[in-house]
Design a protein around this nucleic acid. Structure first.
Lengths: 315, 315
DNA sequence: TGTTGTTACGGAAAACGTAAATATT
DNA sequence: AATATTTACGTTTTCCGTAACAACA
């Protein structure tokens, strides 16, 4: 039994049971992979892979269990590498953050400069995607952490922590009827008032859109959503063009910057939402990653973050 | 990096940083162990062990983290061996049950015959100890499961499940004043009545003794415990000799067997207790071990047991 | 001075790549 | 026929034990 064998098994599973592919990816000879796997199977006294003649087709029942354990072993071996990196160069390395546009544009700018000041040698990389994609990225270790409002908490294999909460805000042109309301009238705004106008908001599964839909549905209201986009900048652009009333995340509206738009908070209608940060369960978190999470979720101390990540059910 | 190195690191830690000892236990040469560890340290680029000159003295800070990860890796490697055993000989193997006397004598006889019928080839072994010792045994993998009422739930690193609940019962000789009470009078028995008599019960930390003490203390009662023992058989023996009133677990009193003793249920006074079964977190559980747990805790399905053991926080 | 850990060295074993054979689609 | 896997085989590397050396307590 050795790590090489485990590596080969893992890669073969990942490459859809194609030994040749696995060997190529691992920069080694295909017969070597074949032999190593067979030797492991012999040592364990079971077939890991389902074979049709010579072709590998899938995992046997025992193989499924073995593959799971092997995955965990290799994950820990990867952790070992991270540990050594951490102690060798505590404040150097890379940090890949997977997030939605909203986070990248409006939330992260609040923490990235401070992070950069503390860890000038860490190379930051932002990747964007839908919340579901973000979860996948973290699970496949293409990103270290994900930041999003939707969907993250549901993914098994992820550990998520709350960062901050926010509410939706309507944005309209200054000429729009809604912009003429007194602030006390604005506070009495109802869903019924809203459906009178064409709406512009996020795409499905972005920045609280799920909640928006649910609220309309639960109240039997049928909004006329004329345009949807994944980011508030696009939404604001079309609102400015007079396409309709925008519904965006509060963090994305800044009265000083957005002088040609009027904002009306509507948390009362669509509820309060929690943006969360997610990491893959069981991975070793380098000091600077923990620090980044600390900056993102200042309410929680490092202790709490560590406890959650290590899956302490003690607290 | 290889498994051999991990094995050496683990054993060296276990043997109090004595390489010679570790090598002896692992049936290999001491220089080999030394070299392998140094090579691992070089590859990781850090010192795992604190050295005073040449002697190993302890773990460095990075070493502590490395040792933890290494432990997890080796635990999973051990799991792999168990998996292969399981699939090679599904219904053969050994099952070591760590339990208190009460469990061995009164609870397990209810499930062992059925288990034996289903797995005639499994070699059973019962080891006894105090609940704290049982927890240690399971954590050190000297036993597969522990069954006890006290203390198991508190141990980190253990996963525990409730098996059954029970109440205490008083046992007295037929001549004893308490034996003369009508059953309705017995139901009105108070702690104040009890402290009139010398008592015979479990030792500290056995079979709900903690709860007994707490109840007396909370009520400001000062019982005269003239004799304490770890098992009900011993207690009953001295009760028969007229030493006093026995307080034992309900499961340990059987009116048909214990004809020379009268039993009076006192759950009302000392509360209801839950006997739990514990396994080490993260270990692969062979089918027959799961079956044994199923027999012990019939209320829970196998699904629930598996979920708990795999640490599913989903449910 | 006895105990413990590291370095040096050499034979044995295994690891791994190339080439050939065999099976699958 | 083309692709994929296993078997065969020889070289290279690594492994691991003995012996010698070095450093603590």
């Amino acid at each position: 039994m050795n790590l090489q064998q485990f590596k080969f098994v893992r890669e073969t599973v990942r490459r859809d049971f194609n030994l040749t592919e696995a060997a190529r990816v691992l920069h080694t000879s295909q017969p070597g992979v074949s032999k190593a796997i067979i030797e492991l199977e012999d040592e364990l006294g079971l077939r890991i892979f389902e074979r049709h003649g010579k072709r590998l087709r899938g995992l046997t029942r025992p193989g499924q269990v073995v593959a799971q354990v092997v995955d965990r072993i290799m994950a820990e071996v990867d952790n070992l590498k991270k540990v050594s990196e951490e102690f060798a160069r505590r404040d150097e390395g890379g940090l890949t953050i997977a997030c939605t546009h909203t986070q990248a544009r409006y939330a992260l700018p609040k923490v990235v400069p401070e992070f950069r000041r503390r860890f000038p040698k860490v190379h930051l990389s932002l990747v964007q995607g839908s919340p579901a994609q973000l979860a996948e990225m973290v699970l496949h270790e293409q990103a270290d952490i994900a930041v999003a409002t939707e969907a993250l908490a549901q993914s098994p294999g992820l550990v998520t922590l709350p960062c901050y909460t926010w509410e939706h805000v309507l944005v309209v042109t200054p000429e729009h009827p809604l912009a003429q309301l007194t602030s006390s009238a604005a506070r009495k705004l109802t869903l019924a008032d809203l459906v009178e106008y064409p709406l512009v908001t996020y795409e499905r599964a972005f920045s609280g859109r799920t909640a928006i839909d649910r609220v309309f549905r639960d109240n039997g209201a049928h909004p006329d959503i004329v345009l949807e986009a994944i980011d508030a900048d696009v939404i604001k652009t079309y609102v400015e063009l007079g396409m309709g009333v925008g519904i965006i995340a509060g963090v994305a509206y800044d009265p000083r910057r957005d002088r040609n738009l009027v904002g009306i908070p509507v948390g009362r209608l669509f509820g309060r939402h929690t943006t969360r940060v997610a990491v893959k369960a069981g991975v070793f978190l380098r000091d600077y990653i923990l620090t980044f999470m600390e900056l993102l979720a200042p309410e929680l101390g490092r202790e709490q973050i560590l406890a959650a990540v290590n899956g302490d059910n003690t607290a």
